[in-house]
């Protein structure tokens, strides 16, 4: 066994600490986030009034909304297909952020008793595997969520946060509600990923809901397909009051909101 201890120490000495400094400092390493489209005004003279609609129509899930010469983004629906960014002459700008989690209920924040030890039950309600995998990545040394007092727990009886990925399939409906009721109060629900927020490319259908809101009450929403680990981490920090919730407008990012920010 000692070879493992040695190799672990050796790697640490050789390459230094890999763990991100987030939330103390923003993490700008390449590839940590796929980013999100930014709303933009479309004022190009030569393409005329139809341009905004043309961009919006490229979106397969209706996340883009063209009105009055600008394109707004409903992040709940954005599935990172990049069609608005890569196709055609006009494109939507993307930004490499990850602090996307937005509190959507007035009581999204857990009490101060949960400041440094929070247990999370993750439920897969029909996820394609990507969101769940990004949740799992939180435990790798790059993100190491334990350092912030977050722990995954196998039993809902000890869980404070229910973290749901996937669009909420019909056959998981009962398991999902059972898990929530098995949790002690106070408890919060975090919906992770576009599918959990809006059904994504799957819902609504006879086998799939239009987001898990129709099954369990959601406190915090994390857009993205999949949201990168840092975005999920941000949601956990929001739940414990250690980070600012993204502006509620970020659910439906509108141009004026973005302009106000900048």
């Amino acid at each position: 066994m000692s070879q493992w201890v040695l190799s672990g120490l050796k790697a640490k000495i050789k390459t230094g600490i890999k763990t991100t400094r987030y939330p103390a400092r923003p993490d700008r390493a390449p590839g940590v986030t796929p980013g999100l489209p930014v709303p933009r005004p479309v004022r190009s003279a030569h393409s005329g009034e139809g341009d905004a609609e043309r961009i919006a129509n490229r979106c397969p899930t209706g996340a883009l909304d063209a009105r009055e010469g600008r394109v707004d983004v409903d992040l709940r629906r954005c599935i990172h297909c990049f069609r608005c960014a890569r196709e055609g002459s006009e494109s939507m700008p993307w930004e490499g952020s990850y602090e996307w989690a937005a509190a959507v209920s007035p009581t999204a924040k857990l009490g101060h008793a949960f400041a440094s030890s929070v247990h999370i039950r993750v439920v897969d309600a029909g996820d394609c595997g990507a969101c769940l995998h990004e949740v799992k990545q939180l435990a790798n040394p790059y993100y190491n969520l334990h350092r912030l007092g977050f722990f995954f727990t196998p039993t809902p009886r000890q869980a404070d946060i229910l973290l749901v990925v996937g669009p909420g399939t019909d056959q998981m409906r009962e398991a999902l509600t059972k898990t929530l009721t098995a949790m002690p109060t106070p408890r919060r629900v975090i919906a992770v990923g576009a599918c959990a927020l809006s059904g994504g490319v799957f819902g609504p259908s006879f086998a799939c809901s239009e987001g898990i809101r129709s099954i369990v009450p959601v406190d915090i929403e994390v857009p993205g397909n999949p949201p990168p680990p840092l975005a999920i981490l941000h949601a956990l920090l929001v739940a414990t009051g250690r980070a600012q919730s993204a502006d509620s407008a970020s659910r439906t990012r509108q141009l004026d909101a973005v302009e106000r920010e900048t």
Partner: peptide
Amino acid sequence: LSGALTGHRYLFG
């Protein structure tokens, strides 16, 4: 690496 190269960590899109 995938994310930096292609824009998406899981090569979507």
